[in-house]
Nucleic acid binder design. Structure first.
Lengths: 206, 206
DNA sequence: CTAATATGTGAGGGTAGCCTCACATTGGAG
DNA sequence: CTCCAATGTGAGGCTACCCTCACATATTAG
């Protein structure tokens, strides 16, 4: 009797049409979040932008937070794959190459998923601790990468170093929005150089 | 006839009581912004926290943005003085000392004005370009400091380097919120070391 | 074809926030 | 003391938003 309720919100799509709608809604939401931020985007605008009605949106996402969560978990998976690839190739790279891949490749990932940064920011103040989880996992990956690249580093120094690298990656993302382009590229090169110096110094320790 | 209107909002305080009210309102607003962020704090709560009525708040601040602006300009002046002091002492410092003062002293400033970071963030998307102005001025100061500390650096390299230093200072602020304390301090030390390496390399160029 | 379920719709209920307004109180000047 | 501008007050207008609901349409199963 209570097992199924036809007009319950938050159902997962089962038919083909539903999956398309969900995809369109998420894409629209992503655009909105990028342009106006989480707080300023409205459910009405998300629906309109996806060519759907407000009721259709609430059919699949019972709450505004649930929309953000869906986007974040999707991005989190993509980021994990990305870090997995970096980790696998770390043994083959010099210090300069590692610095380049950590900064540039990550910035590229963000450029392909523009909503990612904005969402991880708000995810910290969301009830679900998704934001913390993502940052924590990223830190774990960086620790592993550092352990490979700087084998002489004591285990206790890995996490602080990973935190520093994480902040430098965040800085690279921030620099990505700078204008004009020549200044931006110069600054990004400098940042990469700074990371190289730091990584090199870590690897030289024993 | 149109020169003065008694019940006009946004008037500056002239009597002693008014100045006290404004101070209390700004302090309350600062606390709210720190605890809940700009979007989530309400005018009603600001007034209540200051022990004033909502009408009294609107007497001095015609809009929510105007409250944020007042706080930001105040902080901006304090930050300018801070940078002025750093600039004056730069010639006396070694690379390590400069890195230490840039990171730690700035983090201390933020600890004494907790609302600063949160407000500069939102100031970027505010109509008045206060956020950009502050960041720009900070960048100017850093350029001057670098010009003193690394006299051999070509003028064209100053601004990109200043941007990198600025990002590292931002990173130091972000690390300030980390737990536990031992991990935080270790990471901050590492960040300072990274900055030292970078500054040293800049100063060694010719 | 028919029944059943998934999907689609948009008016509107409920709420909360920003800000106004008409009026009360205070305190200093003359 | 008297007057007037400065300051103080809070109910409420207005708006915008989140979300619900009763019902319509589409699609699949049998």
């Amino acid at each position: 009797m209570a097992s199924q309720n036809t007009s319950q919100a938050g159902r997962a799509p089962s038919r083909r049409r539903g999956h398309e709608r969900v995809a369109a809604l998420l894409a629209a939401a992503s655009d909105c979040f990028v342009e106006k931020g989480y707080d300023a985007t409205t459910m009405t605008e998300i629906a309109a932008r996806a060519g759907a009605s407000i009721g259709s949106l609430y059919q699949f996402f019972p709450t505004k937070e649930s929309v953000a969560e869906a986007l974040i978990t999707g991005h989190a998976n993509g980021l994990n794959e990305h870090m997995e690839r970096l980790l696998a190739q770390t043994p083959d790279w010099t210090t300069e190459e590692l610095a380049d891949h950590l900064l540039r490749a990550f910035a590229d990932y963000r450029k392909r998923h523009p909503a990612f940064v904005a969402l991880v920011e708000v995810a910290g103040s969301l009830p679900s601790m998704l934001g913390r989880t993502i940052r924590q996992r990223m830190r774990d990956y960086l620790s592993q990468i550092l352990a490979i690249h700087a084998p002489g580093l004591p285990a206790g120094d890995l996490r602080p170093a990973a935190m520093v690298v994480q902040q430098l990656m965040k800085a690279a993302v921030a620099l990505d929005g700078e204008q004009p382009a020549t200044l931006r590229k110069a600054a990004q090169n400098q940042l990469q150089h700074a990371l190289s110096l730091y990584l090199g110094q870590l690897a030289a320790r024993r």
